[in-house]
Design a binder for these strands. Sequence first.
DNA 1: TTTCGTGCAAATCATTTGCATTCCA
DNA 2: TGGAATGCAAATGATTTGCACGAAA
Lengths: 141, 141
Amino acid sequence: MMEIIERLKVKGITLTPQRIAIVEFLGKSVAHPTVEDIHKAIKRKYPTMSMATVYSTLRLLKELGEIQELSIMKRGKACFDPNPKLHHHFLCRKCGKILDMDVDCPIIKKGWVSGCRVEEAQAYLYGVCSECLKKEQSAKE
Amino acid sequence: MMEIIERLKVKGITLTPQRIAIVEFLGKSVAHPTVEDIHKAIKRKYPTMSMATVYSTLRLLKELGEIQELSIMKRGKACFDPNPKLHHHFLCRKCGKILDMDVDCPIIKKGWVSGCRVEEAQAYLYGVCSECLKKEQSAKE
DNA sequence: TTTCGTGCAAATCATTTGCATTCCA
DNA sequence: TGGAATGCAAATGATTTGCACGAAA
């Protein structure tokens, strides 16, 4: 994730310890954290870290195209994906986990559809993940 | 939309004038209205109609599978689609309009993906709609 | 009569904003 | 040093909830 830091530096973005901490946390996260998740995690290191700072840094990173915010919401809370590239998501209704889907849909992508210019695309699948299905199976036996 | 009313009756749902008004409004709406849109429209006929009633009726209809709530949000507000069948949506960043997309994606649908059971799927496309593109074009000339 | 829906107001909760203080370049 | 970032608290705005009243079976 140091590449992000480099790009921010090149763009003249002020690199505060808080911002670096957020970028580093996002870089190693795989769970599509909410603002609260991020705040809680970083508060251990920086006890004064405020929600306002987390919100503003996330907005900055989003505007710079370094991360993406998902339209799917974890129980009403926004969540973020450190991977800004086009990919889709699966939300498990049992455990609430969000999984990245590496499916390449020929239609849901940038380009043209019915005369409209598509600049961004996101697909959301909802259901039960393989882990939860396994648990259901064992419970039955 | 009278079929919905029929189905509600069969299921033993109490049919109040307010609920009927909401169902009728949704039935003839094509613009994916927000809760506020619905409330405002019906308030003309029923001046005492409260937001709480709109919210509770929408939740009821959603739980019964008669309508769907979109994960895409009109400026932070939830919006609803009277068509509960699987289809996708396009949000125009210029005019804010949401269009139904009649594309049949072979991957973004119910079924199985990577060991997960997909019960519901929604794809969202973001960009500029054909109308706004036309306006842009004329402005240039 | 008894249950259920309505509508008002108050409560909730995520997110935003104002502003004084502090920090990076 | 100067402009930008931080952090606190207060404000905002969508949605939910509690509860008394009224309507429906």
